[in-house]
């Protein structure tokens, strides 16, 4: 289940400022979504769908795939840049904390820099996923390219 961040608003390079937060993307991955992800990504490690297996490895239960959190943050960035024709250049995160299914996960990003390089208008961001206690379970950084107005 998703609360869509996709506002459809066209964001241009001139519009953004350091310190601005981009529209949040709120996810709430169900166990069904983890099974979808297993098929979509090809990662069938049992800690993501088999409760007994997950517990036998010492986990509290099934955990959300780290890579799915990276893909959620990809969706956060894509929904922000795509309406104006922007692109994602790079994004990376560390998986610092476990996330569990049927729990809200908020994907967020704050602009940390703007620069022009090789004719591209680049925007740097701090990005992260946040659990219901407000902990940053996957902090990282991203760079996107945005077009200019006109």
């Amino acid at each position: 289940m998703t609360t869509a961040a996709a506002t459809g608003n066209k964001v241009y390079f001139e519009d953004v400022e350091v310190g601005q937060e981009i529209p949040k993307l709120v996810k709430n991955p169900s166990t069904q979504q983890l099974v979808h992800w297993a098929a979509g990504s090809g990662d069938f490690y049992q800690i993501h769908y088999d409760q007994d297996f997950a517990r036998s490895t010492g986990l509290n239960g099934i955990i959300v795939h780290g890579a799915l959190k990276h893909a959620f943050l990809g969706q956060l960035l894509w929904d922000w840049v795509a309406p104006s024709g922007g692109t994602i250049k790079k994004w990376g995160v560390s998986y610092r904390g476990m996330d569990y299914p049927a729990q809200e996960m908020t994907c967020r990003g704050v602009i940390t820099g703007k620069r022009q390089e090789h004719g591209e208008n680049l925007v740097d961001l701090e990005i992260w996923t946040e659990n219901p206690s407000g902990q940053k379970t996957s902090p990282g950084t991203a760079t996107v390219s945005l077009p200019k107005r006109g």
Binding site: G66, A67, H70, K89, G92, S94, Y95, G140
Partner: peptide, 12 residues
């Protein structure tokens, strides 16, 4: 025997 994903970075 156990594994976890520690992080992912991608560049296009």
């Amino acid at each position: 025997k156990r594994r976890l994903n520690g992080g992912t970075e991608m560049e296009y």
